[in-house]
Amino acid sequence: MVELMVEGKRTDGRGPYDLRPLKLDVGIVKNAAGSAYIEHGKNKIIAAIYGPRDIHRYGLTVERATIRCRYHMSPFSTDERKAPQPSRREIEISKVIRDALEPSLLLENFPKTSIDIFIEVLQADGGSRSASITAASVALADAGIPMRDLVQAVAVGKVNGTLVVDLSDIEDKEGEADLPVAFMLNENKITLLQMDGKMTVEEFKTAINMAKEAAAKIKEMQKQALVSKYFGQGGQTR
């Protein structure tokens, strides 16, 4: 078994409750309706929103906008070259991200249209789906898509029997459990819940609370990024 916790510290020196360094920028893709760039640990991800735009395709929902999400890892994003065509994992994560963001959006305002979310992972580390959700939610706000709340996601895991938030790549791969969760904190709702590995019921409850605390911190970063773009550095929301 790989030693991932030594004297209460993780391999990168963090404590169990610490997040990796997080940086968010808004409005970096000029041609998109809204965009965001996130650096979360070693993850470097761009999210860009296009639409709402008119679509005429059989089978699409006519009463509201259809969300189309494409999560893609660049061939150079991993240690070994990744084949550029969408893998099974990428297709699954695209769906998961779409499902995590959809509850926050008021799609009835744009019937018969599509809103496209493009997520490009430039550099991958553990928790790229969580970072993608966080960035895409900010990009949607930047695009002016009506939303009930910002969505933020984080993974909680178990390494060497200890619960830790915001898993790095090695913790993700070698740990005993991985629990990515996305929240709409204002409404106290969970929009994504996946689990890989095993936890007891008590551990699960604790993990959700840890994730919630971490999501609150991430939400502050999201708000700061939007305030910085729209209201300037000194901007204050209520």
Partner: peptide
């Protein structure tokens, strides 16, 4: 006017009209 972000509670009570 007050600056707001999506999800923030802007006001409480009962208003006759509101938009966005």
């Amino acid at each position: 006017n007050k600056f707001v972000l999506p999800g923030e509670v802007v006001a409480q009570g009962s208003y006759r009209g509101w938009s966005n």
